[in-house]
Design a binder for these strands. Sequence first.
DNA 1: CTTTATCCCATATGATCCCATAAATTACCA
DNA 2: TGGTAATTTATGGGATCATATGGGATAAAG
Lengths: 152, 152
Amino acid sequence: MFLSSYVNGVDKKGRVSVPAAFRSELATHSRAQVVVYAAPDDKYLYAWGYDDFLQFAEKIKKMPAMSPQRQRLARTLLAAARPLGFDDNGRIMLPENFIKHADISGKAIFAGQGDYFTIWQPENYEAKQEADLEHYEDDLAALSGLWEELGG
Amino acid sequence: MFLSSYVNGVDKKGRVSVPAAFRSELATHSRAQVVVYAAPDDKYLYAWGYDDFLQFAEKIKKMPAMSPQRQRLARTLLAAARPLGFDDNGRIMLPENFIKHADISGKAIFAGQGDYFTIWQPENYEAKQEADLEHYEDDLAALSGLWEELGG
DNA sequence: CTTTATCCCATATGATCCCATAAATTACCA
DNA sequence: TGGTAATTTATGGGATCATATGGGATAAAG
């Protein structure tokens, strides 16, 4: 499970250390890779462990062969995703287009989201957090609703 | 599995490098060729690994011999398809009619779609991506719906 | 005999590997 | 417990390798 968040440096080669805690989580997968793709709706990146992303992909592959919906999902998720391997020091190399998409320069924040994590330009992340606060009460209420439904 | 997308140059001879990541996927097939055909519905090309395309073809071959439906599929897929080999540097040569069909000149984008990939003129692809965004929420919902149905 | 495709080599760019350092964390022991 | 050693983590730079791409020679086809 990906928990808590970490800020790491991005060097001029585009390399960045994935937090050790996340790395050991990723190591449990059949390939020690992280699959990254640009969030279609905002300036950040999604990052999944290999096996979890594969499950995602399998669902898409099970959709009707050439249906428009399947094709759209394949474009936004499969074609946009990149499996990134680690160098000996636990770094990945963020491709140019990802760095651009997320406005990253110098530093990046890795934010655990449970079964995946996201990568942001730190200032953008802080702004997003601030905005989240306004929904906090409502979101919490929704959560407790769910809680009761599930008999928790 | 074909993941992520890459832009490569098409030289005046019509040659273009197939991304190395795709090449190594194609190399797992019984012949190191890629089977390409023009998308019937839009300006791009489909590209399959040899064995997977064969399986596809088998399905068509199992249809009643002279049925109009089989004949149409045979024309759009089998007759239009072309197995392309690689030169020593991992390039294929796109035949003139494919280049025309996809409006390709100078550059081409290879978009992984899981069990196959597609080839586009980059600007056309970007336009398509943009259009995809309008369906993003719905498509994602459909995917998670599938998710629960399948117990994922 | 011209045109077109294939093969072969040469090169630049960019990715990957490897080592070296520094900071932070943990382990160990007086 | 305080302090020191050992380990893990993050980071930087350079060497090496892979990939993409261009041009020309050779072979095949019309």
